[in-house]
Design a protein around this nucleic acid. Structure first.
Lengths: 144, 144
DNA sequence: CCGTATCCGATTTGATACTG
DNA sequence: CAGTATCAAATCGGATACGG
């Protein structure tokens, strides 16, 4: 298990750089980044739009479990932040196409890294959760 | 930054079929990863603990805005998932030290990438938000 | 087809007070 | 110092119905 960061294949090919300088001060915008994408559906939409642009109902079918309300809200929020673009074709019946902006694509990169982490360590997390049910193993160090 | 969408690196490199939502399958553990760390404070705690271990009140002062309740909840959740370790020194008065587990350190890698993204694009996002107040500029394409 | 509006329950968060 | 308990508010998210 100690082979945690032996190789990071995708985006982070370098060794954990001194990113996030002065954590206390600089982490606030980072927290904002998480909250705008940390809701139930945002990251899913970004990832799906990462492959190609989709129409509204196309997204609705792809996600399969999202309500119209939340899909619209999510898209509007991503649009407000400049991550997703919206193009309305004045046909009849109307058709609306959503796609990632360049900014959205740049987000896709660290997003994929985090998604990758979740997939690779899914088992370890569930093992830890199972291990912690019923027996809290808070390590107590001896007084010297 | 135009090298972003040349290829979606890891899990998302395959095409999304219209009928079978493979994105849902691939993104569900990823979605879990986001929800685990996507709450208001988790990633902040992980990043701060990434530099060194901290005591409870040390964290409380570093974050400055978190309530005791949320700090405790966040730490317990991270502990349950095996991302954070907790060591109790039986001194008087008591002192509790929190630190990142190896699994937590591995999470720190993609987390830093996302935090980095948030810091680098903070200005662009706020510009987009400001641009969208009052004037919705949905792009309408001409009918052919 | 692409939404918006309303109602409603579930979850999250904060403020405050209290304890070993 | 390091938490826990309780209450109230805000937000999230889904179902349904309706409109352009």
């Amino acid at each position: 298990m100690s082979a945690a960061h032996t190789d990071v294949p995708s985006v982070l090919s370098h060794e954990l750089p001194p990113s996030v300088p002065a954590a206390e001060l600089a982490a606030c915008p980072a927290s904002d980044a998480f909250r705008r994408v940390g809701d139930k559906w945002s990251m899913l939409v970004v990832i799906i739009l990462g492959s190609r642009s989709h129409r509204y109902n196309e997204l609705h079918r792809s996600i399969e479990g999202i309500s119209q309300r939340m899909l619209t809200r999510t898209l509007r929020a991503l649009e407000t932040d400049g991550l997703v673009g919206r193009r309305v074709h004045p046909t009849v019946p109307p058709s609306v196409e959503y796609s990632l902006t360049p900014l959205g694509h740049s987000l896709l990169v660290p997003l994929s890294a985090l998604a990758d982490w979740g997939i690779r360590h899914e088992g370890e997390i569930q093992a830890a959760r199972h291990r912690s049910v019923g027996s809290e193993a808070a390590q107590v160090v001896e007084a010297s």
